[in-house]
């Protein structure tokens, strides 16, 4: 059975019979029936991007787990439908880095297209444009120009346009 890594958004707890999942000191530990599978999770061990196949699990039933900006979902039939359902609700967009907000180009209610500029966050003397990879409706904005933000801090909330 495979786990999928999805880079991006909100944590979704799928209601699957589960294994106990915990993250400790860079180890992802998935426990079922007294047997635990351990995975070393490092930034450099993971593949970025949408549905990169990374890990193999044998003894679990699975949950969706989020840590940092990555989402871990089990590759089992029906999971994508379930995720779709969850993803059609409101989602948080988390800052990818610690830095300063240079510009905010949206306000609540705005409808944007994929790759439209939403914000720019500056860090280490580099400007990082914040965009979404799909069309969205901005629900609320939680920061402002010149604000200092931490990695994983909520910048705005959005959902798929109805």
């Amino acid at each position: 059975m495979n786990w999928l890594i999805k880079s991006g958004d909100q944590k979704h707890e799928a209601s699957l019979n589960g294994s106990k999942v915990r993250m400790e000191r860079g180890y992802l530990l998935i426990e079922k029936d007294n047997i635990t599978n351990s995975y070393r999770i490092n930034r450099h061990n993971l593949q970025h991007g949408k549905f990169g196949k990374v890990l193999t699990v044998e003894y679990y039933e699975g949950v969706v787990l989020k840590f940092g900006r990555f989402e871990l979902i089990p590759d089992i039939p029906g999971i994508e439908e379930r995720l779709e359902q969850a993803l059609s609700g409101p989602q948080d967009f988390l800052s990818p880095m610690t830095g300063k907000v240079l510009s905010v180009s949206v306000k609540p209610g705005d409808l944007i297209k994929a790759s439209d500029p939403i914000m720019v966050v500056e860090a280490m003397k580099m400007e990082n444009p914040i965009k979404l990879e799909e069309d969205a409706q901005i629900l609320s904005v939680h920061t402002e120009v010149a604000a200092m933000v931490d990695a994983d801090q909520i910048l705005f909330k959005w959902q798929r346009p109805s």
Partner: peptide
């Protein structure tokens, strides 16, 4: 050692 091993058994 329980965390480091690929599998661990309680």
């Amino acid at each position: 050692h329980a965390k480091m091993a690929d599998f661990s058994v309680a």
